[in-house]
Design a binder for these strands. Structure first.
Length: 863
RNA sequence: GGGCGGUUAGCUCAGCUGGUUAGAGCACCUGCUUUACACGCAGGGGGUCGCCGGUUCGAAUCCGGCACCGCCCACCA
């Protein structure tokens, strides 16, 4: 079947059929494959690597749609683009997935042992780890699939170890016994950023400690079980209530330990009783105070989450059970004075959901202050820009008070620390195993975010000086979510500056968070998730991309399926508009800005304005605005007005006029396909293949510019007047209950030059014939008060009486409002003269319209 | 506890540095088998722009306060 006949048959855009075929064409033509030796200014975006455990959710789809928009647009602009793709090993998440799998077989990872377990995880990764990357293809993502990387690739792992060793050499990384966030179920430390704070209803227990030499001191705690590990009581130095007790010894209930009463300015006088029990083993503030006062650190609860030997008969109890026992014992001892309901914020493990147990353990830390300094500067100086700008506050607030980062994890899946222990317990930090016998590598692995921090350059081969690194580093844009600004974005900037000698990107676009339609978080477990692949099946990838981009501006949004549907409508509209033009053009007609008639010049003028607007929107990261501009240009200006205006010419016998219409329409379509391609790549690529004189793929064609497109303000005004006239006529027909296509005869009063010159266009769109006769019929006021159409026809006016009166009243209301303004001396004095002139003009215009309508009504009354 | 964002038509959202009759899509009503599209065409109804003050000739837009909603940060036990 030839293409013309094929197009004739395909009366609607069938996304599913087109998408696989078009995607294959892109792949077969290596559209996505980046070549560092190719010409063109480099442009690089690194995909935020999804977890290997992930499957494409709405956030990924939006994130991918935005990146693909940028990548396709820049590619069309002739840049040498690389969209780097790959996945993250996601230490905790992946280990949990495989452990769950093992649990189904009735096993734990300990049954396998570390080596076998890690092997099992690798196997799992090989079989399902690229699922999500495959899903990105459905979306049309033009990432370079041939360069897919994984954060545990050999080369990548080497980069990670190099960075660790170098950070240690520079003195940033150190090992310390410190109070960390401990996740009991995961049996590992986690970083501050992996802790989620939630409000919890607890009880504040006030507990009396006897003081040696008489008296007592009452403290407040929400965790009585930690009393077992108390080593002091602290009060504020200026607190008169306790001045006489300072320096004495208090007796810790339950365990009977003698502890000093000390002073410290960090104690809040106003909170609780003003006396604070010091438990360095279980509280961050206490840990600090204990360190400064040289106090011992005791632990009531161990790394297994169970009670230790401080109370031998309680050893092995869970922390919760310990809590109950402690309360019970305090009551027995008469030490429990009050139980106060207390709502406060408590930390939870982001991954396991368990309440964080602050515990002391030997961990590896990275001092961040010196790394942060230059990274703060580049944001303050706008070398790195956030979009929207306010997001940089999240970054700066955190960076300016940054604390050491606990980078070690007690997991099995991840990058083992390049730390080697000798049998005597001493260690060296280096990549290779040291010479000699008995060296054991650290069993700890690194925080997943440690390796992610190197993503923009480790994926390009760093530390080797690869052509890729030379070409695409520093990179350009990062597109990601707000939740990982500090977790990831900040760390990429810091390590990029410190190691890769440059910024990983200059612009950070923070995409919206999409909530479920009811405003809740979109999540699988809540059942509020919407699967983007289902949307692609139902509406098509273009529609899904369009809808996501449209619904997301600079704030979080509720998912609105209607916007996806709008995208489907637009794709179909464009499809059929193109069919109309392609099926009704001469075989040798080719796209050209043939501005023969006003309508042609008008649509070219509108096209140029649209190109400017969309290009600016893309440049300014205003993607939602671009969808709106494109929609109204395609649907309203091109289809509703231009195509309707030229239909008669396309079907008619005037060869010159027909040719101009075809060429202009083809030209507009050609450029519009280019403009829309970054948002809707499939339908535009498919239509491109039907255009005459096309060369190659749209994805590799030039992005439209306004060069060679004539602007024509005169045509814009003329066609604007025609549109107003036609709209007025349609309204009048409806008001008079005439058939939509009932032919009308009309005369014009006022300045009718433009309308007379375009009588054919007016006739074609408005089914109206202009005649020279006295102006008598119902009035259709035209813009700017320049002219009025009068419709001839017996009995017409009578039917219109109500509507005419209504429109007259509307006009009068405007006159009144505007004249009121003008009567205000202050307004006339103080408002800018051009505003005042505008108002005067307005008043005159509406007064004229009202008068015309009034005259009609008067004539009716007279007749 | 600190900070940020939101509150505009029944629903989901646009409205930039204050100035035409506050817009769009969907939904709703009316009329159209017009040879690109019924995933269509035309017309219409619907909003005192969360509340209270202030600045200004003029406020959806700027400022202050309040009320809800959402998010981020945070070592007051």
């Amino acid at each position: 079947m030839d293409r013309h006949a094929e197009l004739e048959e395909r009366t609607r855009y069938e996304a599913a059929e087109v998408e696989s075929r078009v995607f294959a064409a892109w792949r077969d033509n290596n559209v996505f494959t980046a070549d560092p030796s190719a010409p063109g200014e480099p442009y690089c975006i690194a995909l935020p690597p999804p977890n290997v455990t992930g499957s494409l959710h709405m956030g990924h789809a939006l994130n991918g749609a935005v990146q693909d928009l940028l990548i396709r647009w820049r590619r069309m602009q002739g840049r040498n683009v690389l969209w780097q793709t790959g996945t993250d090993h996601a230490g905790i998440a992946t280990q949990m997935v495989v452990e769950r799998e093992l649990a189904k077989e009735g096993k734990t990872r300990h049954d396998l042992g570390r080596e076998a377990f890690v092997e099992r995880v690798w196997k799992w990764k090989q079989s399902t780890g690229s699922t999500i990357i495959e899903q990105y293809k459905r979306l049309g993502a033009s990432m370079d699939y041939s360069r897919e990387r994984f954060t545990m690739d050999d080369q990548y792992a080497l980069a990670v170890q190099d960075v660790f060793v170098e950070l240690h050499r520079r003195g940033y990384i150190y090992r310390d016994n410190y109070l960390v966030n401990w996740s009991v179920p995961l049996a590992t430390a986690i970083s501050d950023l992996e802790v989620e704070h939630k409000d919890v209803d607890d009880v504040l227990y006030e507990v009396a400690y006897a003081v040696e030499g008489g008296g007592e001191i009452i403290i407040a705690t929400v965790r009585p079980v930690t009393i077992l590990a108390d080593v002091a009581i602290a009060v504020h130095p200026n607190d008169p209530r306790y001045a006489s007790l300072v320096g004495k010894q208090a007796i810790v209930p339950i365990v009977g330990r003698r502890v000093p009463i000390i002073t410290d300015e960090r104690v809040e006088i106003d909170f609780g009783t003003g006396a604070l029990k010091i438990t360095p083993g279980h509280d961050p503030l206490d840990f600090e105070i204990g360190k400064d006062h040289g106090l011992e650190t005791l632990s009531a609860i161990g790394l297994d989450g169970k009670l230790g030997e401080l109370v031998p008969e309680w050893a092995g109890l869970s922390a919760d059970e310990g809590h109950l026992r402690a309360v019970e014992r305090l009551q027995e001892e008469g030490a429990l004075r009050q139980e106060i309901p207390y709502r406060h914020s408590v930390g939870f493990c982001q991954r396991s959901g368990a309440r964080i147990e602050p515990l002391v353990s030997l961990q590896w830390f990275c001092r961040m202050d010196e790394l942060a300094k230059p990274a703060i500067d580049v944001v303050k100086s706008r070398e790195v820009r956030f979009h929207p700008e306010r997001m940089e506050k999240i970054y700066l607030d955190w960076m300016e008070q940054i604390r050491p980062w606990c980078v070690s994890r007690q997991l099995w899946w991840g990058h083992r620390l390049p730390v080697w222990f000798a049998p005597d317990g001493s260690f060296v930090v280096q990549v290779e195993q040291p010479e000699g016998e008995g060296w054991e590598q650290s069993t700890d692995v690194l925080d997943t975010w440690f390796s992610s921090a190197l993503w923009p350059y480790a994926t390009l081969g760093w530390p080797e000086a690869t052509p890729e690194l030379a070409k695409w580093y520093p990179g350009n844009v990062l597109v990601t979510g707000r939740d990982i600004i500090n977790l990831w974005v900040a760390r990429m900037i810091m390590t990029g500056i410190a190691f890769a000698d440059g910024l990983p990107f200059t612009d950070v676009y923070i995409n919206s968070t999409i909530q479920a339609a009811d405003g809740r978080r979109m999540s699988k477990s809540l059942g509020t998730g919407v699967d983007p692949l289902d949307l692609i099946d139902q509406y098509g990838a273009d529609a899904t991309r369009y809808g996501l981009i449209k619904m997301c501006s600079t704030q979080d949004v509720r998912f609105a399926e209607g916007m996806i549907d709008e995208g489907r409508g637009l794709a179909n509209k464009l499809w059929n508009a193109s069919r109309l033009v392609l099926l009704n053009s001469d075989p040798d007609a080719a796209p050209a800005p043939n501005g023969l008639e006003s309508a042609d010049r008008w649509i070219l003028d509108r096209l140029a304005a649209t190109i400017e607007s969309v290009t600016t929107d893309y440049e300014d990261f205003q993607f939602s605005a671009a969808t709106k501009t494109l929609y109204s240009f395609i649907w309203n200006e091109f289809c509703d007005w231009y195509l309707e205006a030229i239909k008669a010419r396309l079907y008619g016998d005037d060869a010159g006029s027909k040719r101009a219409a075809s060429e202009t329409a083809l030209f507009v379509i050609e450029r519009t396909l280019g403009l829309l391609h970054p948002i809707c790549p499939f339908v535009t690529e498919e239509l491109w293949s039907f255009l005459p004189n096309r060369t190659g793929l749209l994805a590799l064609s030039d992005f439209p510019t306004t060069a060679g497109i004539p602007r024509d303000a005169e045509a814009a005004r003329t066609v604007g007047a025609i549109i107003e006239a036609v709209t007025g006529l349609r309204r009048l027909r409806q008001d008079a209950e005439l058939s939509p296509r009932a032919p009308l005869v009309a005369t014009i009063s006022g300045d009718a030059t433009a309308l007379r010159a375009e009588a054919a266009l007016l006739a074609a769109l408005g089914t109206v014939e202009l005649v020279d006769a006295a102006a008598t019929g119902p009035a259709v006021p035209l813009p700017a008060g320049s002219a009025t159409l009068h419709i001839q026809g017996d009995g017409l006016a009578g039917k219109l009486r109500g509507r005419l009166a209504k429109r007259r009243d509307e006009a009068l209301a405007e006159v009144k409002k505007t004249e009121g303004k003008l009567a205000n001396a202050k307004f006339v004095d103080r408002a800018p003269p051009e505003i005042v002139a505008e108002e005067r003009d307005r008043a005159a215009r509406f007064a004229r319209d009202a008068a015309e309508l009034e005259a009609q009504l008067a004539a009716l009354d007279a007749g």
